[in-house]
Amino acid sequence: MRTIALMLSLAALPVLAQTQSKGNPPNLNGAWAVYRAGRGAAADPKLAAPAAGPMLLKSPYADAYKKRQAAEREADQRGEPLGNRGTLCIPYGMPQMMSAIYPLEILQTPGQITIITEAFSEVRRIYLDEPQAKMGEVAPGYYGHSVGHWDGDMLMVDTIGIKEEVLGFRSMPHSDQVRITERFHLAAPDVLHDQVTVEDPVTLEKPWTFTFAYRRTPNYHLLEYVCENNREYLDDNGVTRLKLQDH
């Protein structure tokens, strides 16, 4: 009984009290590339990212998602692939940017962690030991508003304020009420895991969890990426076409 009362009183504490860092944070500074079996450093299956959990969408989102996937497969087989925002060189945003198709860089500075991706030069800023804003108070964007704190050697990050139009990981549909929580930790001195949980009361039956794994690439300097010469365009049917140079 006393335990329950204690739990209730803890739950009633303001959010700020739960977001103060404790412990000595590990050093995450530097460049990281996807940790993948068979490429780069020898991959240890124990360090690879665990398989993603099931993405359980509510109806009618589940039906629309299945239809779109089937249409994409059919279009690919026809040789007329359907395009999306990525085709138009619109940056990924959260959480897709963390899939790090090209390496990313983490900068740890007092009170802030900054993540820069090579693809599309995307930047997200995680403010440490600050309270999260209320849902609906953040102007929807590609990276939203991220706050974080260290819990021992685990970096906990909470992100809200992601625009509906931003394509989710694996094209998961989401509303403007989506919340992304991340747990970063070193699975080995040079292997970083980012366990991502996406919650969305509108589109998801239950939270969806998946993990990205990265290996440290100490001597790598990120390259620039400016999408200045996109020759792919979408025709009136949404099909990806390549602009050829007339000669």
Partner: peptide, 10 residues
């Protein structure tokens, strides 16, 4: 690939 499906290529 990075930013689009490449099913237009054979």
């Amino acid at each position: 690939f990075a930013h689009h499906s490449f099913a237009m290529f054979d």
